[in-house]
Structure formats: C-alpha cells, structure tokens
Design a protein around this nucleic acid. Structure first.
Lengths: 225, 225
DNA sequence: TCAAAAGTGTTAGATTTACACCCATGA
DNA sequence: TCATGGGTGTAAATCTAACACTTTTGA
C-alpha cells in the first residue's frame, strides 16, 4: 500500500527565488512581470512548483537554473509562506530561497528573454502576493549572514578592490562604513588575498585587486574549532 | 475555473512542533513514540498535516493546541524540511515550528494521555526521519532569539527568581554564566520588575521574585525606534 | 595642475570579562 | 553553628567608533 496518508489533503507547493546581484554600488533583485494567471502582469519573483520527485532545495536550484542557466551558487532558504489566501488563484504554500549571483553571469539578453530585470533593493515596487515580504525577509537574512560568513564574494567578480567590497557591504546593510575601520577588519581576514594586479578602471591611481581564498577560509574555520 | 495550476503536482504538507519547556534547570523538548505507520514506535516530534483551509501558522498552533490544550504562546517557524525521501512512507514536506511553554501548564496526565514526555535537550535519542535535525535547528534559533528578545519568560512561571532566570539562559545556551555580570545586565532591563514577594522554596534566606512587564518592554521598544 | 579615488594609525569611549566575599536563615 | 543559596562592585582587557591627511596619475 503506497498511501499511508490518504485521508489527508495535498497542497500545491512552490518555491520563489530572491536573486540578489550587485551592480553600480547597489544591491539588486531580479524580478519580472508575472506571466501567468492569476496576477498576470504584476511584479513578481521568479518561482516554480515543487515536483513530487525532487527535494525542495533541488526545486529551488532547478528554478534558478531554468531562469539563469546558473548552477552551484550560494542559495539559502528564507522561510515558508503559507497564509490560506496568499495566492488569489488557489491554495499554494511557497518556500522562499535567496540566491547570490554575479550580475556579469546573467546577460541583458537572458534578462530580456525571460522578461526579468535587476531592480534596486530600495526601490522594489508593489509585488504579487507576499513577494515583497519575502524580499524584505531575505534581505534581513543576508545582512545577518554576511556579518558572519564570507558570502559576499558570490556577488562580486573573481577579483575586486577593497572599495568595491566596502560598497557591497554598505549596499547590503544600507549604511555607510568608515573606510579605515573597514580595511582594518579586512586585513585581519586571511582568506581575503591581495593579488599583484591593479585595477585602473575606477581611479587614475589604480587600486589593488583582491580575491577570496576559499581554502584559506576553510582552514581558518578548522583552526577555530 | 478554479484550477489555475492543474498541471502541477500537489504534495502532503505537515507541521512538526518542537515544544520547549524548562524544568529542573534543564531545557526540555516534548517528544513521544510515533503512533502511526510508517515509523511506528520511533521517537518523534508531535506533528500533523496542514489542511487546505488553514494557514501554516494556524496549522502549527492547532497542532500544539490539540496536544496540549495550550493557545496563545510564542511560536516561530524554524524552516521547511523537504528532502524527497525524508518520510519513508510517502513524499511529505514538513514545516517545523518551535513553541515555548511553561511546563506547569502541561500536566503529567496530559502527557500520558498523548504518550509524550519531556526529554532533556542534551539527551535527545535517535528520532524518526529528520526530526532530530529539526530540534537542533530550533535550538539554535532559540539561542539567537533569546539573546535579543525577552522570550524566555514564556518558559518560566509568572514569578521567578533571578537564579531561575539565569539557569534558564544557561540551559538554553549550554554554558555557565557569571552571576554578577548576569544580574548587572538584568538590572538594566526595565521590563524585568522586582516584586515585593519572596520565594522561600529554594533557599533558607529566600530570594526576591521578579516578573516580566510586557508593557514596559513594548514602551522600551518604542523608545529605541 | 588639479580633481578623484586609494591608501594609511591613533585615541577615547564603550563593552565585556574576570573575580571574592558577606548575608540571612532553617535545620 | 553551619551549610546553603542570595546578593553585591571594581578593575583590566578588549572591542568599537571617530577622525584627516598624503599619494598617484590621467585628463
């Protein structure tokens, strides 16, 4: 007998992705106009239904992949959202996930093809259902995460300047940081490696490029335990 | 037409409750032997299926109420758990919630009737499915929560001594605290009110009883904004 | 030559931690 | 009278926050 729980009700289960990117010193989210009823045309997160043969984390990864072609990036569950009437069409419980991607990995063409675009986190419009709430909650979680773990690098190019890194932290937390204090703290993080390359794009003088050394980070972690 | 999403699959959705209590200076969780197949007889959290006509938060509250007869206590979502094979019987996605109750509100008789009992958080046995993981995660969240918000009072009687309060914090975080530093910090919290009552149960000298003043706490919050 | 971004240390204040003795009382 | 848990303050160390000037170079 395969139906132990036959007397109970099944429910539509979806995932919604809050896809964060960092561009022009702003934290952005990838959103688009909803392309299905109900709610067609409203601003919406990109999402999809969970299939019976995949885990919820996989469903989130698959959804991200279908939209962006990107795999193997940082994703983390935000929360399940399940008010009875959150979806005007039918009862759907949705699990929100946030993802961090490098905007350079997602071309303007791809955005057009899927009808999505990067919107500044501080300028999110009204959105379908509870999607805006999902975005706010995801941001809070990202703020906490980035304070303790080096996830920020997922939002930056492989090589970056300290000013870029600072702007990223400022964008995530929505507050300015002191340059000297910031650089002091970064210097104490062995997993942020100075390279001998110089970026000349944003200043005449040029700024040293750094990179994130994952192995160093993991060694650090072991050391601390 | 009521089925916008007919081409997608529905899934069993459940809630599982991590019910915390505080007794004999230990943080405890209410667990019982599972009374249904599959997994009958394994240690398990108390849970239930989400109905189509209730939100997930309500489902969690209802589940807690069905077990304990207790309403209006602090509950908070832990996370959704949704590996494909997490339930050996069928595909079930479960949303874990933790609750804080005063053990005095749940009699030994009630426990027997429902076949559940308080188990020390540090002595949780192997459990059905991913329930142990849920407990660990809930504890982490509780630790964070209690650091920033006065949720601990939900686990204590209405009146309590400072030593009791300290033991609670120690039990939650699994580490001893310095008595003087602890009391210093408590003194700065205006919402912890001294009463003129004395507890003579645990010491010959007697200890002053305190109580949590919710209104004070909320006034404090407003003040800080 | 000057505008624009990169880079660099010190100090005061706030917070956190460590630590030891007296008090009141019931048995 | 003494064993038990209740109650109290200070000083060192650490962490955090504030702050201003020099360097380099392309336009």
């Amino acid at each position: 007998m395969t139906s132990y729980y036959f007397e109970h009700q099944k429910i539509y289960l979806s995932v919604d992705c809050i896809i964060f990117g960092f561009e022009a010193n702003k934290l952005k989210v990838l959103i688009g106009k909803r392309q299905m009823d109900p709610g067609r045309g409203e601003w919406s997160l990109y999402g999809g239904f969970v299939r019976n043969d995949e885990g919820i984390d996989e469903a989130a990864k698959r959804t991200l992949y279908e939209l962006t072609g990107i795999r193997n990036v940082f994703m983390s569950q935000v929360s399940a959202f399940g008010n009875v009437d959150r979806d005007p069409g039918e009862r759907v419980v949705s699990i929100a996930y946030y993802a961090l991607i490098n905007v350079a990995d997602y071309s303007a063409k791809q955005q057009k093809d899927h009808g999505v675009e990067w919107v500044n986190i501080d300028e999110i419009p009204e959105m379908f259902s509870d999607h805006k709430e999902m975005v706010q909650k995801a941001r809070k979680l990202l703020q906490r995460k980035i304070k303790h773990e080096p996830v920020g690098f997922q939002l930056l190019p492989h090589l970056f300047t300290l000013t870029q890194l600072q702007r990223l932290y400022e964008a995530v937390n929505g507050e300015e940081l002191d340059k000297r204090n910031f650089r002091k703290r970064v210097k104490e993080m062995d997993f942020i490696e100075k390279t001998d390359l110089i970026d000349k794009l944003t200043s005449k003088r040029g700024a040293v490029l750094y990179r994130f050394n994952k192995k160093m980070y993991e060694a650090d972690l072991n050391f601390k335990l």
